[in-house]
């Protein structure tokens, strides 16, 4: 899951014209300081839905907004089961 997210993360960076690319991202990386802006995260979630046919944020009973990369990955792992 982390690999797919990483790939789509880099794709979202490319789509928002950010030069930075990640080979790996630490779990404690703060999302808002990762180079993606709100539009970038919207793109990331849309690309992941296209790839995985999954939007965990639509399925959540209690809405959670992740603050770090680790939390973001954990949400996708939890809802892909």
């Amino acid at each position: 899951m982390k690999d797919i997210i990483l790939e789509k993360f880099n794709e979202a960076l490319e789509q928002t014209d950010v030069d930075q690319r990640f080979e790996d991202i630490n779990d404690d990386q703060v999302l808002l300081e990762s180079g993606l802006d709100s539009l970038g995260f919207a793109i990331l979630v849309a690309l992941l839905e296209e790839e995985l046919d999954l939007d965990p944020f639509q399925q959540m009973k209690d809405a959670v907004y992740p603050t770090t990369f680790g939390e973001f990955v954990a949400i996708y792992e939890k809802y892909s089961l």
């Binding site: 709100s38 539009l39 919207a42 793109i43 979630v45 849309a46 939007d55």
Partner: peptide, 12 residues
């Protein structure tokens, strides 16, 4: 429009 949890909607 495509529903999006970050920005409400995005363009598809």
């Amino acid at each position: 429009s495509k529903t999006n949890p970050v920005l409400g909607s995005i363009v598809a």
